[in-house]
Amino acid sequence: MGETTPAVEIRNLVKDFRTSFRKKLLRAVDDVSITIMPGEVYGLIGPNGSGKSTTMKALLGLVAPTSGQCAIFGKDSLKVDSRNDVGFLPENPYFYKHLSGNETLRFYGKLCGLGGSALQERVEELLEMVDLTGARDRRVGGYSKGMLQRIGLAQALIQKPRLVILDEPTAGVDPVGSRQIRDLILKLSEQGITVFLCSHLLEQVQEVCNQVGIIFQGRMVKEGRLEDLIAIEDQTEIVLQDADERLIEGIHGMVERDGRASVVRTGKPRTTLERLFLREISEEE
């Protein structure tokens, strides 16, 4: 498959749901088009109920579009073979409680047609990758939220798909677990795997995605490269290490002499609460 085939191609997707009683139509997704090229990390952001999950489900063939088309690497989403190349982690997944982590991955692997030593090797590799080797024989019913998300990510990757779809991958996970998942997403991106994720945690999307779409009330309101979308074109940021008062005053003087430019603000950059939390935790350990 050439690099020119988009990993995800959603064209003019419309999805109406019929509310059960008065048969009133509810438009969950309204004319949404998304194209994700191989290797990109695309973040779809929007408030709850804005149509993010429905868009993903349509892409996976879990719901049928009212109109429009969805395709994965050129294959129609409504066809089963389109799912050979995709891994999916739903929002708040629960796996079969009676299976251990190892059995869970083996089950999904077998569904994808894997077997024998190739499957076991892949399972070991993924358990290692999501840091669950120690919990491999524990029943999934006893896993924490973060562990469930990680085993979920591992099952999504079992058949080495070229595309992974993650629905709120860090919802309800503590900062450490959330950081682990974020690092895993970055690792996938480094391996050239296309990632399509949706979230309402904007900071995280900003950290991992290079393409962003904003969806609101079923409609795509803004889309593009993250850097282009968030850059404030007429401003420039300079962060200095060990600069003394004299240097700062000098810089202020230079700006004043320029006449055209002006200083918007100076001060100490702040760490984020997340970084502070993670630093304190790692120091405690």
């Binding site: 489900k57 996976l60 063939g61 879990l62 089963v80 073979d81 799912r83 050979n84 995709v86 891994g87 999916f88 982690l89 739903p90 929002e91 708040n92 997944p93 629960y94 796996f95 079969y96 999904y108 569904l111 994808c112 047609g113 979920g152 099952q155 999504a156 058949q159 779809i165």
Partner: peptide, 14 residues
């Protein structure tokens, strides 16, 4: 209910 069905049908399973 547990959404395990999503993960199964998202695999190439008719």
């Amino acid at each position: 209910e547990d959404r395990t069905l999503y993960t199964i049908l998202a695999k190439p399973v008719p």
